[in-house]
Amino acid sequence: MDRCQISATDIACRRGERLLFRRLSLALESGMALQISGHNGLGKSSLLRILAGLLPPFHGSVTRQGAIGLLDEHPALDENLPLAKALDFWRAIDGGDAEITPMPGVEALMDIPLRFLSTGQRKRAALTRLFGQRAPIWLLDEPLNGLDTAAIAACVAVVEDHCRAGGIAIIASHQPFPVADLQVLPLADFAP
């Protein structure tokens, strides 16, 4: 995997009239994993969207080197299509020729339209889409929500492999994410 890097300098985030956090800086290099922790409403998702470049920061700047893969509450897969076809759409866009290694338990769901899947199954499907993108920088918003114990272990293992291969993972989650060498950034420290 190519070298990748993401850094944020002195960013602040405002949603509506409310300042969510300020003076936040971070810098990650290839192979590093960071968890953004904190309770609901602190702005974890907003921070990820700022890092992804989808939301302009109220103040400060973000630089990134390498493609961004984002996993949030929207799977971005067609509800009415069998999962295999819905994933094929992204494979055609991402230009990957190789087979995507699906999350454990996803092979069995390939013929089922997404709208019939449970929360955990949808999350697995979305993770499979993320793997197929082969982006070096992963931004994961509550990746463990709805996953059962086996799937949590699989997800953690995949993130570990990703970082070992030289990728970056930034995980926004209120629950512990047991991956090796994980730095933790408590977002509450940056609340105004």
Binding site: A52, G53, L54, A67, I68, G69, L70, D72, E73, H74, P75, A76, L77, D78, E79, W90, I93, D94, Q133, A135
Partner: peptide, 14 residues
């Protein structure tokens, strides 16, 4: 937009 397609396209530079 609701299902996040536009976000994913934007991340891929489309």
């Amino acid at each position: 937009l609701d299902q996040g397609f536009f976000d994913q396209w934007a991340l891929r530079g489309i």
